[in-house]
């Protein structure tokens, strides 16, 4: 049965601004289905973003929505979550937003293991500003600022998240929307900082410069370049060259930040009482 996306959309703002075939809409849909499965009241959910194509998401969604500055969504979200640890904070970010200008905030949100879910839509490019190379543009691929092919090696956002201490890390694709929904759902359920990277297409800014000018070509490219994690384990490294690993890459248990802070408050208050008593 059709999913009732309208329940979560600000319909007066639709249709959205994303280009034909842009994968962001697929990710947003997966996120909305996952939120529905959580059974959360819309009043209890905040969706926070930075700057870029993906960061326009909150404007279309009927939650508490916050469109912040470039790269800083996790910083705002951390304040929001600490002020109301009982509520649900989701950050949606692009690859440039999360991994370049927001890289520091990304590392430290992972380190704190704060109960926020970060969805990174990775379309390999700065779309909104005109197709400049991003930290995830694959080596040799073209961008408006990499006219001869990117010389910077690409960053693996999930590996960085794991190394920095995120406790749920998964990678899905817009070619597999139902799996993506499952990863987002598991991220929302997870107590701690969860990162879901969604490999996505930007036919207009990325595909067009790299011989994939249609959304269909790009989605097929994404499908062909993803390797499920169990299979990846059996493959020699050279066969994984130029591919990305999909699936739930890391699930761990570690104290969650707002719960730790609640304990700290109890400790501080007990100590203060002792000092006065």
């Amino acid at each position: 049965m059709a999913f009732d996306y309208e329940k979560y959309l600000r319909m007066e703002r639709m249709p959205h601004m994303w280009c034909p075939g842009c994968g962001i809409g697929i990710v947003v849909k997966a996120m909305l289905r996952a939120i529905e499965k959580m059974g959360w009241s819309q009043d209890d959910v905040a969706v926070v973003s930075g700057i870029g194509c993906t960061s326009r998401t909150p404007g279309y969604l009927d939650f508490n929505t916050l469109h912040t500055t470039h790269g800083r969504a996790l910083a705002f979200a951390t304040g929001l979550k600490l002020a109301r640890p009982d509520k649900h904070v989701i950050v949606i970010s692009g690859d440039g937003d999360a991994a370049a200008i927001g890289g520091n905030h990304f590392l430290h949100a992972c380190r704190r293991n704060i109960d926020i879910t970060l969805i990174v839509v990775n379309n390999y490019i700065y779309g909104m500003t005109g197709g400049q190379a991003s930290p995830t543009t694959p080596f040799g691929m073209r961008a408006s600022t990499a006219p001869y092919g990117a010389v910077d090696p690409a960053m693996d956002i999930c590996q960085v998240a794991i190394a920095a201490g995120a406790t749920y890390v998964a990678r899905g694709t817009v070619a597999q929307g139902l799996l993506l929904e499952r990863y987002i759902l598991n991220g929302l359920k997870h107590k701690g900082f969860s990162v879901i990277e969604a490999m996505s297409d930007c036919p207009v800014q990325y595909g067009r410069r790299n011989r994939m000018s249609s959304a269909v070509e790009m989605i097929q490219w994404i499908r062909d370049h993803g390797v499920p994690v169990t299979r990846a384990k059996e493959l020699p490294p050279e066969e994984l060259e130029g591919k990305f690993v999909t699936g739930e890459l890391h699930v761990a248990e570690r104290p969650e930040y707002t719960e730790e802070y609640r304990r700290l408050i109890e400790k501080a208050q007990k100590a203060a009482e002792g000092a006065h008593g």
Binding site: M1, A2, F3, P15, W18, P20, G25, K29, G177
Partner: peptide, 18 residues
């Protein structure tokens, strides 16, 4: 077959299967 793949993957919220 109501597999929903079209709906799930429509980035524009433009297709619904009932």
């Amino acid at each position: 077959t109501r597999c929903m793949l079209c709906e799930v993957h429509c980035p524009d919220f433009a297709i619904k299967v009932f």
